[in-house]
Nucleic acid binder design. Structure first.
Length: 227
DNA sequence: GCGACAG
DNA sequence: ATCTTGTCGC
């Protein structure tokens, strides 16, 4: 797979913000999905020495939720962690991993936010726009926005609001566990995004896409660091 | 100035 | 995210 849009990653904080504002205009918050047969999960882990990072892309078969393919890429941190500019830190190796994927997915699930971002352009939207592909933002915690506590049953959800807009949903994926934050990345509606996340999280708090990618990066990190 | 702040 | 053991609770 090759990204449809390419741009420099060597940017100043100001340039990164400006780029987000430009690319954010391309985000589509409506369903533009083909038949979803394969779904990509993305995650990144950092070495404790905080020098390198491991990015993984896993492809799950939509019906069985089994891993069909996976790619891991190691890279070096080139951008600091700045809330709101997260994608400039993690996407470079993630994109390299996608370029090695041989089983094209029809949907991407990211560990982070999509439209639930100060400039409505979180990691999931960034990745979705670059590959011109449907993407969902799924974070363990919130970047911004206010929300009411969802009902305690699996499937319960409430709106994540910011500046008078619905920017995402707090979704309870299991009875009585903390909700996760789902938002539109690209080419998908919030309702459809929530539906998919619930399908992808039948037994755990996080969707299988994120869990599988997370396990993979940590396995690689542990095996390379446990020398 | 004081908090909040995806991973 | 990462540094880290045991421990309180279902």
């Amino acid at each position: 797979m090759e990204p449809r849009v390419k741009h420099s990653w060597k940017l100043t904080e100001e340039e990164a913000v400006q780029l987000q504002q430009e690319l954010a205009r391309q985000v589509i918050a409506e369903d533009h999905l083909a038949d979803v047969q394969y779904i990509a999960g993305v995650d990144v882990a950092y070495s404790k020495h905080s020098g390198k990072l491991i990015a993984a892309v896993v492809i799950l078969e939509a019906d069985s939720l089994k891993v069909a393919e996976s790619v891991v890429v190691e890279d070096h941190v080139q951008f600091p962690y700045i809330p709101g500019l997260f994608s400039f830190r993690e996407l470079p190796p993630v994109i390299q991993a996608f370029q090695q994927i041989k089983t094209p997915p029809q949907l991407i699930v990211c560990d982070g936010q999509g439209l639930a971002h100060p400039r409505r352009f979180g990691l999931a939207s960034h990745l979705g726009v670059l590959f011109n592909m449907p993407a969902i933002g799924c974070g363990k915690t919130r970047l911004l926005g206010e929300f009411e506590e969802p009902g305690l049953d699996r499937g319960a959800m409430s709106s994540l609001m910011d500046r008078g807009e619905v920017i995402g949903s707090a979704v309870r994926t299991q009875d009585g566990i903390k909700p996760i934050f789902v938002s539109v990345g690209h080419k998908i509606s919030l309702a459809t995004a929530c539906d998919w996340i619930l399908k992808l999280a039948p037994h755990y708090r996080l969707p299988e896409t994120t869990r599988q990618a997370d396990q993979l990066v940590n396995r690689v990190l542990g095996g390379a660091d446990h020398v």
